[in-house]
Write a protein that binds this DNA or RNA. Sequence first.
DNA 1: TGAAATGTTGGGGCG
DNA 2: ACGCCCCAACATTTC
Length: 441
Amino acid sequence: MIPVFIWAPEEEGSWPPGGASQWWLDRSLAALNGDLEKRGSRLIIRRGPAVETIRQLAAESGASAVFWNRRYEPASIGRDRQAKTTLREQGIAAESFHGNLLLEPWTILNATGEPFRIFTAFWRACQRKCAELSFSRPISDDAVHRLPPPEHWPHTLDIAELGLAPVVAWDRGLRETWEPGEAGAMKQVERFRNEALQHYSEVRDQPFAVGTSRLSPHLHFGEISPQQLWRTCGQDGGEAYLRQICWREFAYYLLYHFPQSAEEPLRREFGTFPWKADPKNFKAWTQGKTGYPLVDAGMRELWHTGWMHNRVRMVAASFLVKHLLIGWQEGAAWFWDTLVDADLANNTLGWQWVAGCGADAAPYFRIFNPVLQGEKFDPSGAYVRRWVPELAGLANEWIHKPWQAPASAKVDSTYPCPVIAHEDARARALNAFRSMASIGR
DNA sequence: TGAAATGTTGGGGCG
DNA sequence: ACGCCCCAACATTTC
């Protein structure tokens, strides 16, 4: 048996893995190779093109079969199909498997045979179907104590030759925050199940608490499967978490059924929306210098750790789209490059949801108030103080609206004033979005 | 998986 | 005792 990884970023359409993803992949491959070596095996690494490379490798090693887990991104589907055809033409068995999702997207449709567009309806269908299926346990560690090596190991690249690791050392925060690989995923699951799952529905929205699973990058890279989580996280209060897992399913489901949605708004009338070109404010947003503490804390957490708490993602994304009127695709591209959990399906759903142009999306008039969101979900200001040190000395009363603080308050003068007043931005957004509401629906 | 504006209710102060 | 006003608290509606 020869475990293989082929690096072919140019085959990912418009979405080759970004900087943070490449950082994770570098570490994850190293971890996987280490795990395999403990079992008398190792990972063989090649550079794409993927189909030709796997055909070549199968031929030179005399393989009789090639197996892999299916992927669902538009660019991956065609490649999977082509790989099967090519290998089978050579007399090599080729099979792909269902490992990255709970349910295959083509197996769930509504009563009229159409894809669901409303999450709650989709969620109910998932619950029904998953209850019927009852996922089996993964093969135990003991059972794969040793993997049979081939007679001759084929040539392999060194992981470093893929050039995934940062050239300049910008990754300190990522290294301090994450442990890529299956062992890291299992630790995170244990931590989540022991410390957070029970109070998940109350704590998951508090960005300073470690109340969420923090499994998104592990899920994205296949270091843990949603089926494992479904089996082990459903009990006492875990249903709220399974619901979040199904948001991930819904994202893949929508991208499968609407493959254009990574690039284009699902609701056509948004195609002509007059988004602003505003490089100055876009830069302020990326750097966490909008003057709104919760937004800035989130954007800085993202830059430092490659991750942002989900509640803050919604607020920060909403700020870009609704306060600044900058197109969701620009935000999606920034997240794509900076998130270690950058995932085409999830990123697309999240941004289309925020912009109001996706399936079951936020209505145009739902505009987060970054001050109120801060006061509601970070009442102690601990999250803001952690990521915006300029405000660390500020009292709770002003921590989410430092521009209103009295002159005597301790605000570092380098912290910017709001790039736009909330009331003005809200009025402007309502005007701009209102016309969208009447069309379509 | 909002927020703001507007409407309603009911207790208490007061003439 | 009664009506009136005020306004917080809650509910509804509108964006």
